[in-house]
Design a protein around this nucleic acid. Structure first.
Length: 589
DNA sequence: GCCGTTTTCGGCCCGACTGTTTTCAGTCG
């Protein structure tokens, strides 16, 4: 049997853009073309893989994907290709599509060039185009001139490395450093992140930053002295674009104070949110743009986002919700959720230490005391002291029972210190869910633990039904209170495995088990869409750092981002609960 | 092709820049 091609989100995005280009060349319906572009945009900013969503039957949840595109994508995933997409691209020179990657060349230009120079293969198209440009042949084509020929040659010579999307934590560190630098500039008024980093998306393409100033020349001069700049890409009175270390592009937009609200709103996006907002505004007879709100051709500027939203009859919408996932409808009805905030978090339930035993997976590099001290500093009232379960191949069951008992006594002893008086300390372990759903810990060992975090660490390739059954079996164990990193995904490396969420949610409700939002920026598992579904289904969530280094305990905000993007209120997140309720949930039920 | 508390039909976001133009098309964000 021939293997079926697997498609990453980026490959699907590129393919849909190629089909859109083909439709443009063929003169298809303008709005059908735009629908394809919208679909590509939506998939590009998805937090989950298309293939994963397909397996869960949730393709329709992607905004801008209707019945037709669902069918095409299904076809693509099931057979490795789409007959519709193939048909759309048929009859056009195959070499034209690779030209779309050259800045300044869009569908029409790509087609003209490919047709003129017989670019029938993607492999040779670029080289042949370059030769043609060098011979001065591009300038002679109608619609092209000397300047566009030179631009193409220049672009081909640049061959700059493609900027890929980077993890939110890396972008945040770079952004904070830059913000600190800006904070010492006397000519800057307001200063804020914009774009996907402000919406707290789990990956970002570039960093958008906005500021207000009445002295743009002074500020641009100041920006250019920023030590991390590798390349100054563009510099004007209202925009400075730089590349900094870490393959990261930063756009800095400068406006006078009276335009701050409109700028911030426009560049925070998302694109889908803004488009929906502008459509809504049109029904009220006004037109929105990055400059303000136009009524009968007359522009009014806005110095704050609140006023901007208010002007179209909406309450301010938290940036994390601005994905056109129902937030505008909710805002219209004044039913936006009161999102969980950092100050609501009082606990961390899934951690690791350097406790001295042979564990099944990596242990941490700090002590139990270090963990308790840090929990106090973070202002928590509750901390779960965890570790991976002892290695089954290194100990007998009898030994493991003794080891777990000994460890719990150690934790009890340490936590009795007067300085930890205000801290509730839970004795817990992260226990492997074995391929058959059994937990990797002897029955009697559970007696020495308050609760258990159960996680899948092996056999990720089982069919969804088997994985679901396996996780549900773990959920039904009386000591299991949290399922750790439920899908096992690693952002940019491994897509999560497939579970039947409805069954998982039902089991969680029945057994009072929480699903984890793993706050490590490489995991963020479950993602925001699943988190939102879980909450809607009445399932509680726990945000955990799964710390293996002391600094990992500071990752809680990244988990909070996921919770907020998943429309979480404090009530659904057990980290916000007061002690009696928490104790009842984790230990006494 | 998508989508819905004014629509299951009839709409569909806004603006800047650039090059090749005699008033605009293509590209980009």
């Amino acid at each position: 049997m021939a293997t079926i091609r697997h498609w990453t989100n980026q490959e699907i995005v590129d393919l849909i853009r190629e089909v859109s280009a083909a439709k443009q060349v063929k003169g298809d319906n303008f709005f059908a073309i735009r629908a394809y572009d919208n679909a590509a945009d939506a998939i590009e900013h998805l937090s989950d893989s298309v293939e994963h969503l397909y397996r869960q039957g949730k393709l329709a949840d992607i905004p801008g994907i209707g019945v037709n595109l669902q069918n095409h994508l299904t076809n693509l995933i099931e057979t490795g290709r789409s007959t519709q997409f193939d048909h759309d691209k048929k009859g056009l020179p195959a070499g034209m599509f690779i030209l779309l990657t050259i800045p300044g060349i869009g569908p029409k230009s790509a087609y003209k060039l490919a047709k003129e120079f017989n670019l029938n293969s993607p492999a040779t198209a670029i080289t042949k185009l370059k030769v043609a440009a060098q011979k001065g042949k591009i300038a002679t084509i109608e619609g092209f001139g000397d300047k566009s020929q030179a631009d193409i040659l220049n672009a081909l010579d640049q061959q700059k490395p493609k900027l890929t999307r980077i993890r939110i934590d890396r972008a945040t560190i770079a952004a904070n450093k830059l913000m600190t630098y800006f904070n010492t500039c006397p000519d800057i008024g307001e200063l804020s992140l914009m774009g996907s980093i402000r919406r707290r998306s789990n990956t970002v393409g570039d960093i958008d930053l906005g500021l207000t100033t009445t002295k743009p020349d002074m500020v641009t001069h100041y920006i250019k002295k920023y030590p991390d700049i590798i390349k100054l890409v563009a510099s004007g009175s209202d925009l400075v674009r730089v590349n900094v270390s870490g393959n990261l592009q930063i756009d800095i937009k400068l406006v006078p104070p009276e335009s701050w609200g409109s700028l911030l709103q426009h560049f925070t996006g998302s694109k889908a949110h803004n488009i929906h907002l502008r459509e809504l505004a049109l029904t009220k007879g006004v037109s929105l743009s990055e400059y303000g709100i136009k009524t009968k051709g007359k522009l009014k500027r806005y110095s704050s986002e609140q006023e901007f939203y208010q002007a179209i009859g909406l309450p301010w919408v938290p940036p994390e919700l601005r994905e056109d996932q129902g937030e505008i409808e909710a805002a219209l009805k004044h039913q936006l959720p009161k999102l969980i905030e950092a100050k609501d978090i009082h606990a961390d339930f899934h951690t690791h230490t350097n406790y001295d035993w042979i564990s099944s997976h990596d242990s941490a590099n700090y002590s139990i005391q270090d963990l308790l001290d840090r929990a106090l500093e973070l202002g928590y009232h509750t901390i779960g002291v965890g570790d991976h379960n002892p290695s089954l191949s290194s100990y007998t069951s009898a030994q493991i029972i003794v080891e777990v008992k000994k460890r719990s006594q150690t934790i009890d002893h340490i936590s009795q210190d007067a300085k930890y008086q205000s801290l509730h300390v839970f004795k817990t372990l992260e226990v492997d869910i074995r391929p058959d759903g059994a937990l990797a810990l002897p029955d009697q060992a559970f007696d020495y633990l308050d609760y258990v975090v159960a996680s899948v660490h092996s056999s990720f390739n089982q069919p969804a039904s088997q994985l679901t059954h396996r996780v549900i079996k773990a959920i039904s164990h009386p000591k299991v209170k949290i399922i750790g990193h439920p899908t096992g995904r690693i952002i940019g490396e491994r897509s999560g495995f497939n579970l039947n969420w409805e069954h998982i949610f039902a089991a969680c409700r029945e057994h009072s088990v929480a699903l984890e939002i793993n706050a490590h920026p490489s995991r963020l598992d479950i993602d925001e869409l699943t988190a939102r579904s879980a909450i809607t289904a009445g399932v509680n969530l726990a945000i955990n750092t799964d710390s293996h280094q002391l600094s990992d305990l500071d990752n809680m905000p990244y988990g909070l981002d996921v919770a907020r993007r998943g429309w979480s209120t404090p009530a659904s997140i057990i980290n916000t609960w007061a002690w009696p309720k928490l104790h009842q949930f984790l230990v006494n039920n």
